[in-house]
C-alpha cells in the first residue's frame, strides 16, 4: 500500500532543509493550482507566470520561517495565487493593453520626437551653418534675430529691449530674413533635415 506523506510533513521537512520536499509539493499540486489560475485568466503564458510567482512567494515565506502552520498548505497557496491574479487584473486596468490589428495599429501612429543619430548630426550641422550665417548680418539685424529665434521674445519685448519701435524691429527682422536667404543661396547651403 502506497503511503502518501501529508503536506504539513513535507512543509516541515522543507523548512528543515530537505529540498526534495518542495519538488513533491510542487508536483503534487501542479495541475490543481494551474487549473485554478487558468480558470481565472484564460491565458496559458500568464498562467505559467502566476504559477511561478506563487511558488516563489511560497518558497520565500517558508525559507524565512514566516509560514503559519495553522492553515493548511494548499488553501494558503491558492490564496497567494488568487491575490496575484487580482494584482494582475488591477495592474491591467490601470495600464490597458492595446493589441495591434491589421486595420488599427496604435504603434504605427506613435513615435517619439527624438532624432536618430544621423538626423541629429544633420541638425547640428544646420544649426552651426545658420549660426555662422547670422554672424554675417549687420549687427542690428543680428540682434533682432537672436532675440526672436533663440530667446523667443515677442516684437513688443524686442522693441522695449532695443529702444526702437515695433515697426522698426519688424523691419529689421524682415531684412534679416531676406539677407539670410541671399547668403544661403550665395553659399549654396542646404538647411533642411
Amino acid at each position: 500500500m502506497e503511503v502518501q506523506i501529508e503536506d504539513s510533513q513535507l512543509v516541515s521537512h522543507y523548512i528543515q532543509g530537505d529540498e526534495r520536499a518542495m519538488a513533491v509539493l510542487i508536483n503534487r499540486h501542479n495541475s490543481r493550482l494551474t487549473g485554478f489560475i487558468y480558470s481565472k485568466v484564460s491565458d496559458r503564458e500568464l498562467t505559467e507566470d502566476i504559477f511561478q510567482d506563487t511558488f516563489i512567494k511560497v518558497i520565500r515565506t517558508l525559507k524565512r520561517g514566516a509560514y503559519n502552520e495553522e492553515g493548511k498548505f494548499i488553501p494558503w497557496v491558492m490564496r497567494i495565487a488568487h491575490n496575484l491574479i487580482i494584482d494582475h487584473f488591477r495592474k491591467n486596468n490601470r495600464m490597458p493593453m492595446f493589441n495591434a490589428t491589421e486595420s488599427y495599429n496604435i504603434f504605427a501612429m506613435m513615435n517619439d520626437d527624438c532624432l536618430n543619430a544621423e538626423k541629429q548630426l544633420i541638425k547640428n550641422q544646420i544649426d552651426s551653418d545658420l549660426y555662422n550665417l547670422i554672424k554675417e548680418l549687420p549687427e542690428d539685424q543680428q540682434e533682432v534675430l537672436h532675440m526672436r529665434l533663440y530667446k523667443d521674445m515677442s516684437f513688443k519685448e524686442i522693441s522695449n529691449n532695443t529702444g526702437v519701435s515695433i515697426n522698426t524691429a519688424l523691419g529689421r527682422m524682415r531684412y534679416a530674413l531676406i539677407n539670410l536667404r541671399k547668403l544661403v543661396e550665395a553659399n549654396s547651403i542646404v538647411l533642411t533635415n
Binding site: 510542487i26 501542479n30 520565500r60
Partner: peptide, 21 residues
C-alpha cells in the same frame, strides 16, 4: 490536463536551492 511546464518547475526548484536567508 493543464499543468505548469517542466521548465517552470525546474526553475522553481533551482530558485529554492539557491535561496539563502
Amino acid at each position: 490536463l493543464v499543468t505548469a511546464k517542466p521548465e517552470t518547475v525546474e526553475f522553481l526548484l533551482a530558485f529554492s536551492k539557491s535561496l539563502r536567508i
